[in-house]
Each structure stands twice: as C-alpha cells, then as structure tokens.
Amino acid sequence: MGYDLKLKIWRGDSSGGQLVDYTVPVDEGEVVLDAVHHVQAMRSGDLSCRWNCKAGKCGSCSAEINGRPRLMCMTRLSDFDPAEPITITPMRAFPVIKDLVTDVGFNYVKAAEVPAFTPTAEQPQAPFRMAQVDVERSQEFRKCIECFLCQDTCHVVRDHEENKPAFSGPRFFIRYAELDMHPNDALDRKKLVQEERGLGMCNITKCCTEVCPEHIKITDNGIIPMKERVVDVKYDPIRFFRRKPKAETR
C-alpha cells in the first residue's frame, strides 16, 4: 500500500545549509534510499547523494537517518511510523561536499598509514597455507564494506575534530587486529597502534559495533583483543620479563 512520506533532508554545502521538507509517494517494501530517489526524480533534481549497489554491499549510501548512522539502502520505511517525517542528514564526522555527500578522505589517509602485510621468513611468498580456523578469524574483519559508519559514530572524532590526526578509528583498528592475528605476518604493530594510532583513545562504548551493517563485532573481536595484545607488550610487567623471543610467531 502506497502512502505519502514526509522527509526532511539536509540541503547545503560546506558553507552551510538547512533541512528542507519534501513529500513523496512511496510504496510498500521501499527503503529510505528509494524515497531519496523519488525526491531526485520528482521534486528536486539537484539533490546529491552517493549510492551504488542498493544491496548493502558497496558502502556508499551512508547517512544519518533520524540521527542514527545507517545505510540508506538497508533502512526499511516500514520500520518508521508513516505519519512521522523521516530526517536524513549527511554523516556528521566528515566535511560536507554537497547535500548528503561527504568527503571521507580522512579514512583514506588512515588506510594509507597502516603498515602493509609483511610475510614471515619461513613463508616469504604466496600462496600461504593456512588452517581454516586461522582464516576465519580475519575473515570476519574482511567483511567490512568501508561504509565508514563506525568512523562516523565514534565519539572520539565525531565530537572532537582535534583528535583526528592521532586516531585511526574502529575501521582501521580491525585492520590492525586482522594483521596482528595473521599467522603469516611478521610485523609487530602493537606499539604503533597504541602510541601513534590512538587505540588508547577508544573507551569501548561499542557504538561502532552497534552501527556496523555487516554485524562485525568490532569491539569484542577487534578492538578489545588488540587492547589486550597491547597490554602484553606495554603494561604487563610479568609478561614483559618472561616473554619468549619467539612469542610473535606463536
């Protein structure tokens, strides 16, 4: 059953903007991104938004829907009261380019800072032979579609722009965790991630896990294990003294 949906969409650019009201006809089974497309087609052809796959796999259509960071294509209209307007704003942690499109370049800078996979001397070249149980651990983190909703919701940078240079964010902490748990990786990134990439800034309030559209357990399986690994090398006096030289390869 179709109905007329009221939308409030943030319109503007880096110099400022405001919420603009739209009413568009929507059909049963549609998602927020469909409604935004109706606005583009019928009301305002110059509304900008990023989108690509419409299947929750490309990570392009990240926005804040009623204040909550979500993918527009994975947010069903049936989750909302048809009588209430839906508010759509761009991701707040990143600078706006136009309307719902933000400049997520911060994340590419942080991605470039991650020291690449460094194979061990025993197995210096691909193909690497790995047991399935070891593969599964990093496969969870590999599900990341880089929608950057976790980066957007993380209060460390969302509320504190000044922390951005020293904080890689949840998306990249799981990248560091993935490499640190990789059996064929020889590089130790633990001190780096704590001292220069801001792992200690995280106060594990788990908002990144809550917004992840891939349901990656970012905090429990990535950040907390990484914090514990950092404790092994930096804050645990007993382990510090009895650590075997080959502990890295265990």
């Binding site: 209060h155 106060n203 908002c207 804050y235």
Partner: peptide
Amino acid sequence: SPPACAVAEPHKKYSGETRFPLIMQNIHR
C-alpha cells in the same frame, strides 16, 4: 562520554584511556 551513540558528549577535551588515571584500566588482567 558519550551518553548514547551519535549523541554529542558534553566534554571539551577527550583523551580516552591514554593518560593517568584511566590508563590504569590496562591492569584488568
């Protein structure tokens, strides 16, 4: 810090668990 996800926190500065006393959280084990 924060009161809820995506809700602005009231603090001007934030250093997380990088300094004393909160760095002591690392002795959990």
